[in-house]
């Protein structure tokens, strides 16, 4: 496992994810991916589901990947990487490895659409089969590559192009699917949440390093604030991610062996959800008087869930 020391040391890691990609300015996907691929010294084979990351980092004739990389479709990043991992095992067994001196790690990236929704089956299958890979969900709470439609990760109240606010609508009606817990329920040896940025960089890097050195299927759900569709200024990406953590809208925790939960960061003082919601255009309609109840509901749910996480951590079961 790569020792994640201080940032000064980590920053000596030569980038294996190059700039010159076409992600929007300030896109969190780029921040997360850089950290994950830098969190190991092993060689990498990566698959990526269709979505912003994929369409922006391999536009022919350019690739932003200094590691082996594969995109097949929207719903099969996990299946694709499971095939590559199986080939690695087969060739090792048959003494036909391409590089005997190098360990290879397998990583799949998918958006929330490619993970919570259309790719969930293939993720569940690959996880259940016990392939040795890390799956990282870049959770921007909607189908951003196709113009910001809802997904099952879209939080209640958010405006998306298919759950729009309107004369009689306050936006998304359903609550965000709790995918991290669902992945833990698969019995994965390691599952975690994470956010990008300078405040929690070590939390993310350590989790990635840990996941990559764990044998078996591991999962990281990384909140990926989307400047374009969440509607905030590009320079605010890191601040928005931090606010998600400080309000407990997106708590940072990890779960080992499917049950042992540790909260990896506890805000000194939990901020009200308004602090997070008010910074994003996708929630602006919630601040109209007739929608104030939605914010109250969101706060209640956040409080309940935060309580639940703390109790689960305490119980250690």
């Amino acid at each position: 496992m790569k020792n994640i020391g201080n940032l000064k040391e980590f920053a000596c890691t030569p980038d294996r994810f190059q700039g010159g990609h076409r992600l929007c300015p300030g896109c969190a996907h780029g921040m997360i991916v850089r950290e994950v691929v830098n969190a190991t010294e092993d060689d990498l084979v990566i698959s990526t589901a269709t979505g912003c990351l994929e369409v922006c980092t391999a536009i022919y004739p350019y690739t932003s990947w200094d590691v082996s990389w594969l995109h097949i479709g929207f719903e099969n990043a996990a299946a694709g990487i499971s095939g590559a991992e199986a080939m690695y095992k087969a060739l090792s067994r048959k003494n036909r490895s391409y590089n005997e001196d190098k360990k290879v790690k397998f990583v799949a990236f998918g958006g929330d659409g490619g993970t919570y929704d259309i790719g969930f089956q293939s993720l569940s299958g690959a996880t259940e089969r016990g392939h040795d890979f890390l799956y990282v969900c870049l959770d921007n709470e909607g189908y951003m590559n196709t113009g910001g439609q809802r997904s099952s990760s879209t939080p209640i109240g958010a405006h998306t192009t298919t759950s729009p606010r309107g004369r009689v609508s306050y936006g998304e009606k359903n609550r965000k699917k709790d995918l991290t817990m669902i992945m833990a329920a698969h019995g994965c040896p390691y599952v975690a949440t994470a956010v990008p940025g300078s405040k929690h960089w070590k939390d993310l890097a350590q989790k990635a390093a840990k996941a990559l050195s764990t044998v078996g299927p591991t999962f990281i759900n990384a909140l990926s604030p989307c400047t374009t569709e969440w509607k905030f200024k590009p320079q605010d990406t890191v601040e928005i991610a931090d606010l998600a953590v400080e309000t407990c809208m997106f708590p940072l925790y990890e779960i080992e062996d499917g049950h042992k939960l540790t909260i990896t960061y506890k805000p000194k003082q939990k901020l009200p959800v308004e602090e997070y919601l008010s910074r994003q255009g996708r929630f602006s309609h919630l601040f109209k008087p007739e929608n104030s109840w939605v914010i109250e509901e969101i706060q209640k749910e956040v409080d309940r869930y935060w309580e639940y996480l703390q109790r689960k951590e305490e119980a250690g079961v």
Binding site: D43, V45, A58, I59, Y60, W69, L70, N99
Partner: peptide
């Protein structure tokens, strides 16, 4: 062009408009 020859990484599945 094997992906597992990780010393010589390859990108599969690029987008071509």
């Amino acid at each position: 062009n094997p992906m597992l020859d990780t010393k010589n990484p390859q990108t599969y599945g690029a987008q071509t408009e």
